[in-house]
Amino acid sequence: MQFQRIVTGKIKSDLYYDLIELFSGLFLAGFLGMHLIFESSIIAGKKVFNNLSQTLDENYLALAGISLVVVVFFIHFLTAGRRIPTRCKEQKIIWHHTGRLRHLNTWAWVLQIITGIIILILGSIHMWVVVTDRPIKAETSALRIQSGYLWFYVILLLLSVVHAGIGIYRQFIKWGWFPRKPLGYVIGFISIFFILLGFTALFTFLRAGGL
């Protein structure tokens, strides 16, 4: 071992980074699922949505939840983002490699990096809008979607679910918790379910009249 490694001692940072990436990712994926389920309460009606939102607010769950998500969101960016090939040379190699190899999981990783970067931007905007426009009400949510920002939510929904799906798949593969093939199918089906759920909620907001 070299001098600089001996004097700095045992470095466990790579293990900790990996675990923080894992748990922050799982937390965010779990949050995304909850978010989409809560949000789809609009399908059951404006009243149900508002009641749910009010309950969460009264118990400070919304405040605690949103603050925690904002913090974990950026922690996840810092830990998972360290893996992104940032140098020009590296990116050139990766594109060349991925194009040549025609390997589904390698493409999924490239897609995850791209979706991750876009989510960082769109997710930050989304969080800012929600935080500055509290409390969450069916009326204000519907207004945002009806005032021409539907595309924003469609893109964010698709990217988040795809990103979370690929992320969970890869983590479970890395830690060897499930066999690959069935895991891929299960995560695929769950992702499609959440995308459909999200679309139905968006459609309901879009159609919500008399606001």
Binding site: M1, K10, I11, K12, D14, L15, Y17, D18, R83, L101, H103, N105, T106, A108, W109, R170, Q171, I173, K174, R180
Partner: peptide, 20 residues
């Protein structure tokens, strides 16, 4: 010391191109 760094197992991205 040998394996638990970015050079080792924690550098693996889990793309499984090795296995495939």
């Amino acid at each position: 010391d040998v394996v638990s760094s970015e050079e080792g197992v924690f550098g693996c991205l889990g793309l499984m191109a090795c296995e495939d």
